[in-house]
């Protein structure tokens, strides 16, 4: 038997494979791109999805919520001061008889606007500054990074406070102060990424094909840093929201009767003995928002990190 030759096997022992067998070798699943994969893995992460849903919910509430409410954030009901939560006032009223639910909703607007501003600043100034610094390297990089280091060596909030002292309190000042400072961290991260990416072959290839600096930076280098950029933005939004709340809490933020979460918490302080609910709702709102962004940020970091791919 061992010596049987192929030729000895009669032809009728062979038969063609049925079509179903052939299909097994085909690639059934369509290949997915990097971003599809990221999205898939983000959806697998329950905490991150929860965070994302909470953020979307907050956005909807902040945009449409105040429109649906019968009261404005500054309406006072002098006969209904310091009431607990009820059907009429969902979160109760504060010591001036204002509806806390509406005020918290307006606070969400301010906080989310601040978060939005921070992400825009990060994505424009931060990314470009870091990209330019990393790409040109040498003396340009040295000077640009010394400037960033100088900002970075003391807490950004100190600069924001200094700027607020000069600009005076108010929402516009917060925007300007945050805008001047909050790109620094992003610049550092993008610069580090670009520094290592620019030595790779695809950049050389692009340059050999005659791409100019602007094109290499915007089309080749920055899209390749997208992972860390997204993570940094998601982590910086809660920081900016916290900064606004912090400033409003110490009396440097928005001015009354405007309602920001930090301001609401600060207003609730004197009455904490008698009306703890005034503090409870804004505090919950801040904490939930911070949690949601932290969850999403952690999830994104896991989803975007190629080392965690299976």
């Amino acid at each position: 038997m061992a010596n049987t030759k192929i030729a000895d096997i009669s032809a009728d022992k062979f038969r063609p494979l049925p079509d179903t067998e052939k299909k097994q070798n085909e690639i059934v699943r369509p290949s997915i791109t990097y971003w599809q994969d990221v999205w898939f893995r983000l959806k697998q992460n329950k905490r991150a999805t929860l965070g994302l849903y909470i953020i979307i919910f907050l956005l909807l509430l902040a945009v449409f919520g105040p429109l649906l409410s019968p009261y404005s954030y500054s309406d006072q009901f002098l006969d209904k001061q310091g009431l607990g939560p009820s059907k009429e006032f969902w979160f109760g009223t504060d010591t001036l008889g204002r509806d806390i639910f509406v005020r918290v909703l307006y606070g969400a607007r301010i906080s989310l606007a601040v978060g939005f501003l921070a992400s825009v600043i990060n994505l424009t100034i931060g990314v470009l500054y870091g990209g330019i610094s990393g790409y040109f390297g040498g003396r340009v990089d040295n000077i640009m990074m010394r400037i960033v280091d100088m900002f970075y060596s003391i807490p950004l909030i100190l600069y924001v406070i200094l700027l607020m002292v000069i600009l005076g309190p108010g929402l516009k000042s917060i925007f300007i102060a945050l805008g001047c400072i909050y790109w620094v961290e992003m610049a550092r991260i993008v610069r580090g990424q670009v520094l290592s990416l620019k030595e790779q072959e695809f950049v050389l290839a692009a340059r050999a094909l005659g791409a100019d600096t602007k094109r290499i930076l915007l089309r080749h280098l920055i899209p390749n840093c997208m992972g860390p950029i997204i993570i940094t933005v998601t982590m910086n939004i809660p920081k900016a929201i916290f900064t606004e709340a912090f400033l409003s809490f110490i009396g440097l933020g928005v001015s009354a009767p405007m309602a920001s979460w930090g301001m609401l918490a600060s207003e609730a302080m004197p009455a904490i003995r008698s009306y703890p609910h005034i503090l409870f709702f804004p505090a919950m709102a801040i904490s939930i928002t911070m949690l949601a962004f932290n969850f999403l940020g952690d999830g994104l970091r896991d989803a975007l990190d190629p080392r965690l791919r299976k």
């Binding site: 912090f246 918490a265 503090l279 801040i286 911070m290 932290n294």
Partner: peptide
């Protein structure tokens, strides 16, 4: 929780 709760909320 500790990372998410701002210090002024924790203090109050």
């Amino acid at each position: 929780l500790g990372v998410a709760i701002p210090n002024f909320v924790l203090a109050t």
